[in-house]
């Protein structure tokens, strides 16, 4: 049994913690996260409120858990949408080649160069700030990332003899992409998806911080952070808790992605 890399284990533990909290919030939180109690505002940690209460007397733990759920949902949707479109474009570029490949990759370069936050602000200006627009914006910035990874990996697979054998058998390039290319580039795509998950969590927090993501009363780490900012001297813990959550989630998915890459990278594991 080979030993798993440390970053993979730590990353997996952090990710499990965040996903566990998010999943638990679907069925249970210590309190209703919208329940206000002005008289109990800025409450210290207690048996009733484990991390205390905020400026409106809402339970901080409950808000953090519900925000985790929100954050995971946004990141999942954005990575799935952006990842599917990007991977499909990369496969297409690689299968057709020639000027089509050049065109797709140059467009991807342009998308790559476009600042994500700027694009989100533009979307918000045109369509109004909402969680859906935040998801669309984050999806969009994921497309070129996945297109590049998919195309680069697919180009490698296209040179394999089993692909030539499939061509000799009379398969179309679309059928080869489906039967041989996609299954064999799944590993790098999954690694990239894990890393992009971390990026998406950070992007969601940033957008919500700017007021372009989750709208009240939907809880979000980014919005909790911005609301706590004005109270930094009065109650610094209200900014520290969501900050720690963001760090935990981003670090967790980042380490997990790195660890998965270490495990699956053929250059590191050539032991047949």
């Amino acid at each position: 049994m080979k030993r798993l890399p440390v970053n993979l284990l730590i990353g997996a533990a952090l990710v499990l913690l965040v996903i566990g909290a998010a999943a638990l919030s679907l069925i249970w939180t210590p309190h209703d996260y919208t329940e206000m109690n002005i008289r109990g505002k800025f409450g210290p940690p207690s048996e009733l409120h484990w991390l205390g209460t905020d400026q409106l007397g809402r339970d901080v733990v409950s808000q953090l858990m519900a925000a985790a759920r929100n954050s995971m949902a946004v990141a999942l949707a954005a990575v799935l949408i952006g990842g599917s479109i990007g991977t499909a474009l990369g496969l297409l570029a690689s299968a057709i080649g020639g000027w089509v490949e050049d065109l797709v990759m140059r467009i991807a370069d342009i998308g790559f160069a476009f600042p994500a936050l700027l694009f989100a602000i533009m979307l918000a200006a045109v369509f109004g700030p909402s969680l859906t627009n935040a998801i669309l914006a984050i999806s969009f910035i994921n497309i070129p990332v996945f297109a590049r990874v998919a195309r680069a990996s697919a180009n490698q697979i296209w040179t394999r003899e089993y692909v030539t054998a499939a061509q000799a058998a009379g398969l179309t390039r679309a059928a080869i992409s489906r039967d041989h290319i996609l299954p064999n580039i799944a590993a790098p795509i999954i690694v990239q998806a894990t890393i992009e998950f971390a990026v998406a969590i950070l992007a969601e927090a940033a957008l919500s911080y700017l007021g372009l993501g989750a709208q009240p009363p939907a809880p979000s780490w980014g919005r909790m952070l911005s609301e706590a900012q004005t109270l930094m001297y009065l109650a610094p813990q209200l900014a520290i808790y969501p900050g720690l959550c963001i760090v935990t989630a981003v670090l967790g998915f980042g380490l997990l992605g790195d660890g998965l890459r270490d495990v699956t990278d053929p250059r590191l594991v050539r032991e047949r």
């Binding site: 394999r160 003899e161 089993y162 054998a165 039967d179 299954p183 064999n184």
Partner: peptide, 10 residues
């Protein structure tokens, strides 16, 4: 093909 390790999809 030449390479018996490369001509079958793993």
């Amino acid at each position: 093909f030449q390479d018996p390790f490369g001509s079958l999809d793993p």
